[in-house]
Simulated scan of single mutants.
Amino acid sequence: MTTVSSPVSGRAIALDDVPDPVFAGAMVGPGVAVDPPRARTVAVAPVDGVLVSVHPHAFVVVDNEGHGVLVHLGIDTVQLNGEGFALLAAKGDMVTRGQPVVRWDPAAVEESGKSPVCPVIALEATVDVLSRLATGSEVAAGDTLFDWK
């Protein structure tokens, strides 16, 4: 079993409440989202593993069980072309849970007209393999969002 931690602090919300039909419909995969405070912060690795994809607005970590976890920093933030984001790790890096990956500013994302809500997605999974989905509560970066059986 893999425990997936929150990459940012904030309020854990159901994917249904994400303002994007692809994430809200779990088309990318099941998971939880976090609505972060509007202050400059750092997104951290949700699991131990290797960074297989790293962009200013999103990254994927694959753990030693082959579970891929997508962290998407905001909605439609790819359109910001990296502005307001700073990479702290690179593709191929081994990371540990809680290790900083991207520095970003949710307030600046919101000021640009984008949502700073952060989906945390279990890639290539089905909702029935997830348990303990944290929603409706405040979480700190590193707190458990869900378990992946």
Rank of each mutant, 00 (worst) to 15 (best):
31 G>P: 09
83 E>Y: 03
69 V>S: 10
92 G>T: 10
71 V>M: 11
17 D>G: 05
117 V>C: 01
148 W>K: 02
54 V>S: 09
145 L>G: 04
121 I>L: 10
23 F>T: 09
121 I>R: 04
13 I>T: 15
68 G>M: 01
46 P>K: 11
16 D>I: 02
73 L>F: 05
55 H>T: 08
97 R>K: 13
61 V>F: 04
48 D>F: 01
147 D>G: 13
72 H>T: 00
146 F>S: 10
104 W>M: 03
97 R>F: 02
99 Q>E: 15
147 D>Q: 12
73 L>C: 12
142 G>I: 02
37 P>H: 05
16 D>M: 01
2 T>C: 05
116 P>Y: 01
126 T>P: 00
71 V>C: 14
28 V>F: 03
64 N>G: 00
24 A>Y: 07
148 W>S: 02
89 A>H: 00
60 V>K: 09
46 P>F: 06
105 D>E: 11
48 D>I: 01
63 D>T: 00
140 A>N: 12
93 D>H: 12
25 G>M: 03
57 H>A: 12
146 F>D: 14
112 S>A: 15
88 L>A: 03
56 P>G: 12
52 V>H: 04
54 V>T: 06
77 T>Y: 07
12 A>H: 08
142 G>L: 00
127 V>S: 15
131 S>H: 09
93 D>K: 09
41 T>E: 02
148 W>A: 02
108 A>C: 06
7 P>S: 08
124 E>Q: 11
63 D>K: 01
105 D>C: 11
40 R>M: 04
81 N>E: 14
99 Q>M: 13
31 G>M: 08
135 T>A: 06
23 F>E: 12
126 T>K: 05
133 L>G: 13
67 H>D: 14
74 G>D: 10
8 V>Y: 03
4 V>R: 00
99 Q>H: 07
56 P>L: 11
144 T>M: 12
136 G>W: 05
42 V>A: 08
76 D>M: 05
133 L>N: 07
139 V>F: 03
143 D>L: 08
27 M>H: 10
46 P>S: 07
106 P>N: 03
93 D>A: 09
125 A>M: 06
124 E>A: 14
65 E>G: 11
113 G>R: 05
25 G>F: 04
2 T>K: 13
111 E>C: 03
88 L>I: 08
56 P>T: 15
66 G>S: 06
9 S>L: 07
18 V>Y: 03
140 A>Q: 14
117 V>R: 06
32 V>E: 05
10 G>H: 01
74 G>M: 06
1 M>G: 13
83 E>A: 14
105 D>N: 14
70 L>Y: 05
32 V>I: 11
31 G>C: 12
24 A>M: 04
99 Q>L: 09
132 R>Q: 14
102 V>R: 05
5 S>Q: 09
109 V>K: 05
78 V>A: 13
5 S>D: 09
143 D>H: 09
29 G>Y: 06
89 A>N: 00
129 V>F: 00
98 G>F: 12
69 V>L: 04
54 V>K: 01
137 S>F: 01
61 V>T: 10
78 V>K: 03
42 V>L: 06
94 M>R: 13
66 G>R: 05
140 A>F: 01
35 D>F: 03
81 N>V: 10
110 E>F: 11
21 P>F: 01
8 V>H: 04
34 V>G: 08
101 V>L: 11
113 G>V: 11
11 R>T: 15
109 V>Y: 05
119 P>C: 11
119 P>F: 07
104 W>L: 12
44 V>L: 02
34 V>F: 03
82 G>E: 09
8 V>N: 06
